[in-house]
């Protein structure tokens, strides 16, 4: 952990150094009555293309292009560097032309989603580890279906063996809603324990109407409900960690396309 942090800081320092060098170079160009925006623009475009390669790297996992973690750190540091270079390039937070404003807006969105994504990636994994289980995101529907089958088997068995349908009716009226699909997504996303409270509350309320035999079956159902609750948490967290890319990546593609067109226009009209 400490090593990772140190490496992360090292990459950030490297990015800062690159920025300082670029800024100094731009300053020299400006002092020589040149146009530093050309240099910074190309730097920025190159960096953006490099950042976009991170996605390709993930698709080309069979090619030995370095560890993904390294790529991620470089991507994060490069993203921050890109923001700094963007300001160095435009010399303003908000350019004047509508096209440039659109480009800047998307760039800021990409940067923002990148930062948010990075924060999510840094936040949720540790929490997921604390949940005590590991679930592959794609298998969550199957896991939930398995749990639901187990719960329903348990309820049938209880009814058959105890002759009481209290648990069965309660399941049909209440718990079937809970086990049908992931519930309390937003509560899980923000780390709330509202779902667990709901399960506990329902189990406690039901318990008052059960005999000893039924109590045993209720304990089994309760255990499955809490397990399903943890899977719901995984589903919420992993969905968020995957969903932000649905924003970040298309925006990045749009920004890159706009930037390339911007470069062409600059060459045609100004250089």
């Amino acid at each position: 952990m400490k090593v990772a942090t140190t490496r992360r800081i090292a990459y950030l320092i490297l990015a800062a150094a690159v920025f300082v060098a670029a800024a100094l170079y731009a300053q020299q160009i400006a002092l020589g009555l040149g146009d530093p925006a050309v240099m910074t623009g190309y730097y920025l475009l190159g960096l953006m293309i490099f950042l976009a390669l991170f996605n390709a790297r993930k698709k080309l996992s069979m090619v030995p292009l370095g560890r993904a973690a390294v790529w991620l750190r470089v991507h994060v540091a490069g993203g921050l560097l890109a923001v700094a270079l963007f300001w160095l390039h435009t010399r303003t937070l908000w350019p004047s032309g509508l096209y440039e404003q659109l480009l800047a807006l998307l760039f800021y969105f990409v940067s923002l989603t990148g930062v948010v994504g990075h924060v999510l990636q840094r936040t949720y994994p540790s929490r997921l580890t604390q949940s005590g289980i590991e679930v592959i995101y794609e298998r969550i529907p199957a896991e939930l279906a398995t749990i639901r089958e187990e719960v329903e088997s348990l309820v049938l068995k209880c009814t058959e063996e105890t002759g009481s349908d209290t648990i069965a009716r309660h399941y049909l009226e209440t718990f079937s809603w809970f086990f049908s699909r992931p519930r309390y997504m937003w509560s899980h996303a923000i780390g709330s324990r509202r779902a667990a409270h709901w399960v506990r509350n329902e189990v406690t309320n039901l318990r008052r109407y059960l005999n000893d035999a039924e109590q045993t079956y209720l304990d089994g159902l309760s255990e499955l409900a809490f397990t399903k609750n943890r899977i719901d948490y995984h589903y919420a967290a992993q969905s968020i960690m995957k969903m932000w890319l649905l924003i970040h990546l298309p925006l990045a593609v749009a920004v890159l396309a706009l930037a390339i067109w911007h470069t062409i226009l600059v060459h045609v009209y100004a250089l």
Binding site: P95, S96, G97, L98, Y99, E100, W261, H262, L265, Y269
Partner: peptide
């Protein structure tokens, strides 16, 4: 309204 990509600003 200046939406053209050729409009670099006023």
């Amino acid at each position: 309204g200046g939406l053209s990509s050729l409009n670099p600003g006023p």
